[in-house]
């Protein structure tokens, strides 16, 4: 299955990237290009919605880490929405749960973002 990547920006300035399909060595470049493109357009607060991701491997993890590094260079943020246990397990195995903010829903992420302001 191909990877579908779409984005929209909320009134609050949060850019939500919805990802659907399998993120692996073949498709990860598409997500990487999207993250780079958004940063180049000045979008530094990103939320990647992974609820429709069916598969994620270390290449995908590397792309997310690379994206996080890019937005942090602009005092930005890259957080995730994910409740799927099989995806969360990969973040736990690699220790990345300490690196990424992981939320249960987009609304949850928005609420915490407002609370932090």
């Amino acid at each position: 299955m191909d990877l579908k990547v779409n984005d929209y920006t909320t009134d609050d300035g949060l850019t939500v990237i919805t990802v659907e399909g399998e993120i692996d060595v073949y498709t990860a470049p598409k997500l990487r290009e999207k993250l780079i493109d958004l940063v180049n357009k000045g979008k530094f607060h990103l939320l990647v919605d992974m609820e429709k991701v069916e598969f994620l491997d270390s290449t995908g993890l590397g792309v997310l880490v690379g994206g996080l590094k890019r937005v942090r260079a602009h005092d930005g943020s890259l957080e995730l929405v994910c409740t799927q246990e099989r995806i969360l397990k990969i973040f736990r195995i690699t220790g990345l749960t300490k690196v990424f903010g992981i939320h249960d829903s987009i609304a949850d992420a928005e609420e915490k973002r407002k609370g932090a302001k």
Binding site: D57, S58, V65, L68, R72, G95, L96, K98, V99
Partner: peptide, 30 residues
Amino acid sequence: AARGLETAEDLETALDDGSMDLGLAVIEGL
């Protein structure tokens, strides 16, 4: 080794200098 990395910068450094390989970490964990 991955669990000891607290920040994205630590992780990036480990990935850049070859001391960490996310793929192998996943294999070892699974």
